[in-house]
Design a protein around this nucleic acid. Structure first.
Lengths: 210, 210
DNA sequence: GGGTTCCTTTATCTTTTTATAGACATTTTC
DNA sequence: GAAAATGTCTATAAAAAGATAAAGGAACCC
């Protein structure tokens, strides 16, 4: 079992950072859960911050890749492309709910790492989504509207179930980790794209019922 | 200057909890910013957790009160009522962006306090909003739709600019603390209510008397 | 003025936390 | 199988954190 101890550390870290927050978690806690000597964390990740940064880049590399995969469908229309991006991101986040939650939470703090992520990944994300919105207007698919505020709403919908997963499960009894949540919620996002973003004239698909 | 030292502690705590998180902030840090002896924090709030709990209840008492104020407009129609609630909450949160951000962040952790808030304030919130949605359907104002998912979207929109205030300001260059943000963003929320929640060709039948 | 209450300070104890040095073990490579 | 690389452990240094006891002082009430 020597080989996978790095992986054990990562999993334990994601789990604990998720439930207690980064600052609320000690290296000892992580080592305890991972069943590993605390000094090993320093060996693999230099220090606690290194472990967090590993989580960050691991998350955002995949995150931006999901956006790019969706973006490549731009030829097929802006609406289809935006839906593809939204669906990719949603499924990716559903597959990694714990990591997603901890990342989104830590991104709300003031730190060097956060600023770096902003100026790399989020800037790129903004560029890609904005391009889709611009093309959508150009092609007459989308209404003319403030891109910033559309991005706020879209990202709001994509992040809400993960940041507030307690609320979602305990108050609403909706479970983001279950398979059918993603499908159903995706329909809501599609409905928003169609209802609030697309031009009115199109045939308004009423979101599927369940 | 003896009297306001409690207030100084609270302000320092909100500021530091906001930027560094609760666990990332030490009592000494707070005392330093508040220009107060560290032992005074224990005097006023028993311990660090007590200080956090003070922030929580202070926030949620006002929060739920804003919802109730809006809810009292239900007689004037569900749409108008929901808009009133949304607008109250948005303005309240804009007025307290730091407190709002730290509360929303801490609510994403696993803790006793969080569970208590869930089962009191958030349950009440859910009841009130759900009632508005039900009445809206009954009166033919709202489409029939999953209440839970509508609540998710509404709350997503109401919380996004605060939890992601870094993103909003640094990537989108939109400033939630500025006066005109709230007005503009409120219009987006109204557009969502009208576009995604209300019936398409709505003839507003205002509830007679009940 | 004596006493009470409220607030502040000093000083310190205890625990927790991160980090590291160096020994020990295991695996790989030649 | 020896040497090198890789991984793990013990032990501990050093700092930081939370908490508290007890003294000091100011304001107030009678």
């Amino acid at each position: 079992m020597g080989k996978n101890s790095k992986e054990m550390i990562i999993n334990a870290a994601i789990s604990l950072f998720n439930t207690r927050g980064y600052s609320g978690t000690s290296i000892r806690d992580i080592a305890g859960i991972a069943d590993v000597n605390p000094a090993n964390i320093a060996y693999y990740f230099q220090n606690k911050q290194g472990l967090l940064e590993y989580c960050f880049t691991s998350f955002f590399e995949q995150y931006i890749s999901e956006i790019e995969k969706g973006f490549s469908f731009l030829e097929e229309g802006a609406e289809a492309c935006l839906k593809k991006i939204a669906s990719n991101l949603l499924f990716f986040q559903c597959k990694n709910i714990h990591l997603t939650r901890l990342i989104l939470r830590e991104m709300s703090l003031d730190s060097q790492v956060v600023r770096e992520i902003m100026s790399t990944y989020y800037l790129k994300e903004k560029y890609l989504i904005q391009t889709v919105l611009e093309k959508g207007e150009e092609w007459g698919e989308f209404r003319r509207h403030s891109h910033d505020y559309m991005v706020i709403q879209l990202k709001g919908m994509l992040t809400m179930p993960f940041l507030n997963s307690h609320y979602i499960t305990e108050v609403l009894h909706v479970f983001p980790h279950e398979r059918y949540f993603a499908n159903k919620y995706l329909n809501e996002i599609y409905a928003w794209i169609e209802g609030c973003l697309c031009v009115i004239g199109k045939e308004n698909k009423i979101p599927a019922l369940l």
